[in-house]
Every structure is written in C-alpha cells, then in structure tokens.
Design a protein around this nucleic acid. Structure first.
Lengths: 233, 233
DNA sequence: GTGGTATCTTGAACGCGTTCAAGTCGGGCA
DNA sequence: TGCCCGACTTGAACGCGTTCAAGATACCAC
C-alpha cells in the first residue's frame, strides 16, 4: 500500500487541489461569465476556502491564464492532423487558424476578458509578457511548422521572421473574432479565407529577385521592432 | 446681479461639478496611475461625496473615456498645423501620427488601462463601441482629411475606405506605443517612418491598371468586414 | 411667502478581490 | 512513540468600486 503512495506524495496533493480550482473556475467562467463568477464561488465549487485559491494563483486573472494554457494545448492538438496531412501553405495556414476558432468557440462569450488585458503592458495576460513566453513560443513554433512543412520555398531571413509575422496576423484574427457576433463566426472565417491568399502572395512575391530588396527591408524592420520589446525569441 | 446669472443657471452648476470631478480624476490618474487612484480620492480631491461622482459618471472606466475625449481634442488641435501646411501624403500622415504621440506622451505611464479594454466587446472604452462612435468618427474624418488634402489621387472606392484603414493602422501604432519603453518612444517613431512609405506605395500601386482588380477586392473586403461589426459610418 | 418638483448631493452599506495570522496535516528523524 | 517542520488550508478582515434611500437646493406657479 505504502509503495503505491510514492506517486501520490506531498506535491501531488497540492497538484490535485490546484486542478480542482482550475476545473471549478473554468466551469463557472463558461457558465456564468468572468465578472459574474466570484472567487468565493470558485472556492466553494472546488470545495476549498477562498484563501486556498490564492495559495495557488496570485489573482483571479491568473486563473484565466491557466485557462488560456488549456485552450492553447487543445489548439496544438487540433492543429496536428492538418499539419500531418496538408502540404500546401495556404491550406495549412487556413486549417491551423480554423482549428483555433473551433477550439476557442465555446468560450466566445467570455473571451473578451481573456484578451481584454492584451493591451495592458502590466497584465500577466498580456501576450507579450514574460508569463506568456512559453505559450507564445509554442504558438510561434506552430506557425514555423506551417511554413517549414509546406511546399513553399522561402529565404533564410523570411523563414526566420515569417512565423512571428503569422503569429501577429493570428492575434489580429482573434481580435476580430472577439467582436464577431455572426453565426458560426462566418465573418471571421471569411476574413481568414480572404487574407491567407494575400499573405501567400506577399511571401511569394517577396522571393522574386526584383522585390528581394524591399522584402529584406520589411523583414529587417519586423525583426528590429520585435527585439525592441522583450519579444526576442 | 440676477441678470448675469442667466448663464450660470441650473445645468451650469451640474456642468461645473462634472468638470471638477474630471479634473480631479485626471490629476490623480496622471500622478498616481489608474489603479492607485480610488473613487474616494477623486471625490475628496474634487470636494464632493463619492456618490456624486456616480451621478455624473456610471463607472470609474467612464472617467477614462472623458479623459480620452480630452486627449482626442488635443490631438485634433495639434494636427491642424500639419494639415494646413503639408501637401504631401506621407508627410501629412507622419505629421498627424507624430502629433498623436506627442499628445498622449504625458500619459504613457497609465495609458495601458485606456486601451486595456480595447479588446473587450463589453467595455464602453472599446473603440468599436457605440459610446466611442463620436470620437471614432472624428478620428476617421481626420484621416480622410489627410488623404483629401494631399496631392495623392485615389479612386472613389479607395477614398471611401482608406480613412478607415488608416484609422486601423493608427490603432496598431498606438498599441505598439503602449509597449514601447524606449526613450522618447524612438521605436514607435521609427515604426511610423518605416510604415508610412509602405502605405503610400500600396495606395499608389493600387491605382495602377494592372493591380486595380486586386485593390478593388481588398477594399471590398475591408468594407464588408467593417460593416459586419457595428462600425458602419 | 408657500408648496411642488426636478436637479443635485450625501454617506452608509454591499459584495467583491485580496491578504494574512493562525491554524491543520503528514512524513521523517530521535 | 513523540515531536518537528515544511506543505497546505482556513476564514475573518481590509479597502475597493458601486448602489441607493434619504436629504438639500434652487427654481417655478400660485
């Protein structure tokens, strides 16, 4: 009996409590919305004291980040089949982005808060913050895979910068999605359908000798701007 | 004596109290930051009861909007000389955008909150909200003037849509500015310097017969997306 | 003047996110 | 066995944004 308890040692109990709290929070956020969900309600739903939630999460906002990490993981999984199957750049990008929409759809109602703080340099939810670094890196890696696994041939500079640019594009699409109250988010899907070919065209044209110089300048600018903020890698 | 009081009638007293509250709020926001400034402190500074502030403003956030309206007015004024003097499109756009940066610079420290809610569809501060309609319209009109007062010749469709696109671009620049901690916001200024010629080039190229079709599609898309949200006009 | 009324003002009270001093628990060492 | 100590848990208390019933104020009609 005691042997088996090796796994369910000290830290494990804490992990369980932590998971109970995140679960409760996600249930309530989804059902009631962010503002309407109180920390007391989360604690009660999780079967713990309110102070206990603060032992594991510094603030209510940080609970959202845990939530964000989850949908991010789901997105990574949902994008997998697309990356395995498709070889065409536009199809890969569209597939990955649509997988994102499908993943976050259940939370459209209260996702506002999720990205609300996106613009606040002080918030831990800010996609440029250190606390978002892991997620951002993974997300960028996903877009790198969209490029590298496609038939598209790009320069070294382009290969280095394009994933970051696609990540920015993806943030823009999500921002649009937030405000999109059309059924099944048809508008956002249309936006994707319309902008992906443009992106592809830009990348392709950027490889032509004539436009090489201009593309190079653009990429250099993107890199410079990215490194100015603490976004680098 | 009584005759002179015509002007300082009923509504005027209310206006004065309202102004006192906004003044106090702006002083404290600038000095202490948004979060550190309490409604009680604002009320005390303004010499009124806390409940009185809520008679004039539905929430603390709405006080920011009043603040936003002020800097907006300042920007309109600061942009005037540029529009009077310059005739070159790029110079006009750069000048207007740099005027914006100059106007909002004093509030960089706490502007995060100002745009924090930009992504939240529920917030009254959301630039796409009905409550922001007036400001947004004026702002768009400013960019319309940037175009119309320049030597640049554009198609009817382009003239109709370009101001909105420039407004979006301007929001992006402000978002970048928010995260820009370089001295004198040199990075943001560099971003403007670098992107304005690209915008100009895109507009110019879009007028060429060869690319007319593509430009038309792009403009139609922009219009469609804008009308999907309640942004129209 | 007197009463009526719309406008404006008050501050106690509410529920919230958050903090923290005071615990409880359970494995390891004597 | 006893007891120690770090990991974990508790809930009362604090200060905040916000609400609201109650009152003050100033103007009009009579």
């Amino acid at each position: 009996m005691a042997a088996k308890d090796d796994a369910s040692s000290r830290t494990t109990r804490g992990e369980e409590t932590k998971a109970k709290i995140v679960d409760a929070a996600m249930r309530l956020f989804t059902a009631e919305g962010y503002d309407a969900t109180t920390m007391r309600a989360i604690a009660t739903e999780a079967g713990v004291a309110v102070g206990n939630a603060y032992y594991y999460f510094p603030s209510k906002e940080h609970l959202i980040q845990a939530f964000y990490a989850r949908t991010h993981a789901e997105h990574m999984a949902a994008a997998r089949p697309v990356l395995e199957k498709e070889r065409d750049f536009a199809a890969r990008l569209t597939g990955v982005m649509e997988a994102k929409l499908d993943t976050i759809e259940p939370y459209h109602r209260f996702s506002g808060v999720l990205f609300t703080t996106a613009a606040d340099p002080e918030s831990p939810l800010n996609p440029f913050s250190d606390e978002s670094l892991t997620t951002r890196r993974e997300s960028t890696a996903l877009f790198a895979e969209v490029v590298s696994g496609s038939k598209l041939r790009v320069s070294k500079e382009m290969a280095a910068e394009l994933p970051n640019l696609l990540w920015i594009w993806h943030m823009g699409v999500v921002l649009f999605w937030l405000h999109d109250d059309s059924k099944r988010r048809e508008r956002t899907r249309r936006l994707i359908q319309a902008t992906v070919p443009i992106l592809e065209k830009l990348v392709t044209l950027g490889s032509l000798p004539i436009l090489r110089g201009m593309a190079k300048d653009g990429l250099a600018l993107a890199k410079e701007m990215r490194e100015g903020r603490k976004l680098s890698t």
